[in-house]
Design a protein around this nucleic acid. Sequence first.
DNA 1: CATAAAAGTTAGGATATACTAAACTAAGAG
DNA 2: CTCTTAGTTTAGTATATCCTAACTTTTATG
Lengths: 239, 239
Amino acid sequence: MKKKAPVAPAMRAGALTGQAEDYLKAIYEMEQGGEPAATTAIAELLGIAPASVSGMLQRLARLGLVQVERYRGARLTHIGRSAALQLIRRHRIIESYLVTRLGYGWDEVDEEAERLEHGASTDLVERMAAALGHPTEDPHGAPIPTSEGLVDERRLQSIADLAVGQTARVVRMSDRDSEFLRYLAGMGIRPGATVKVAEREPFEGPVTITVRGKKHPVGIAAASRVYVESAPARRRGRG
Amino acid sequence: MKKKAPVAPAMRAGALTGQAEDYLKAIYEMEQGGEPAATTAIAELLGIAPASVSGMLQRLARLGLVQVERYRGARLTHIGRSAALQLIRRHRIIESYLVTRLGYGWDEVDEEAERLEHGASTDLVERMAAALGHPTEDPHGAPIPTSEGLVDERRLQSIADLAVGQTARVVRMSDRDSEFLRYLAGMGIRPGATVKVAEREPFEGPVTITVRGKKHPVGIAAASRVYVESAPARRRGRG
DNA sequence: CATAAAAGTTAGGATATACTAAACTAAGAG
DNA sequence: CTCTTAGTTTAGTATATCCTAACTTTTATG
């Protein structure tokens, strides 16, 4: 209800449609490391056809949010990156709020936040942040960008990067896919947990890790989605 | 992010798109009283062209949510009414939550709730309801339908219906248009306040009402959007 | 380095919504 | 009971997304 503006459900300053927002977040996450985000990779992450991505990238480019190199992929412009960081901030604050105030499990909150973030106003998000005391990490341990868009993306190692015998503290893990998160939780892997690599099969094989005294074999795909802070670990504050 | 289903951003059981949801709520509010909701009235309430409404009504009819009588308007089917009540429940619970838990003013919360309700899952809404102790009225005094869809739509009078000299207690007011709500608040008119009609100009002219000892002239349009419970008033519990 | 496989793009359609302009209906005024 | 007009609907478009099929470019292989 209430008079609506022309057509686009802009609602927020950025004036992007929900879908376009998802693209920005996806590109932000994939382009880490100089390389532009590949069309197919974006398509896979968002669950849409590569052809659709090509089209959207052109639109985003027209809006000055990404820079597209034909047949190579897209990278965010400064404006695009800043927009993406704002979206990530929204997402992580909403996740934090849902977990802290409404009893959501950290392994099921991503989906709900994904839908809410497209409708929530910046004002609401900031109220949530304030209610939580301006948290700096979300429930999965991922850093929350500040409202200025900065983010501490310290280069973390994943379990897959550790050598046999190394001990490390889990800092964060990929937040999507609650099934995966529950699987990790079942082994005691969560932000703050200490893990140790007991064995490693060669050729990209599974890694056997020790968590709270119990050994668990973990596939390389899963291991590389759990970020750790390699540290002698043994009782310590923050990293 | 996360694999998305085919095309429609269905998300909830009902599988309606956000816009369609707004139409249902609008129709629910307008058809009160046997008469179907008129195309132009819906168009005005939603701020879109009448022609667009015609198109949407056909789509809603195809979905079995409304029954359209050409050139006369639309009324909700049982399914449509039930869907509308669910949407109203969502809206009012979200409003209540925002006011109670995030410090929103009751005069500014409608817009935020309007956007949020399209993304919030039923689970989230019920969690909010539970966190608030399953409220039965929203911040504007409007009843919240139960999850079964029932709603206590006791026929309320508006200030415009009162006779000179009558005293009444404000029960609720139209929730959209925060400017209007602030205007009312400025006179001390809010749910629970007691008002008395001091004078009435003839021919749909303004009504002068007394609120907390002060007299205020109120246009008939505004007066008819403030619902009261005519009662001898003078210190009493609930209605 | 020629060519096949992989990755990416274009073309042509589909859906949901909205808009304007033109055509049509219903309802009140004489 | 006809005519004007307010209210509706239809027709033709536009935008944002998505899809499939067909074509193009890049990359990888022998």
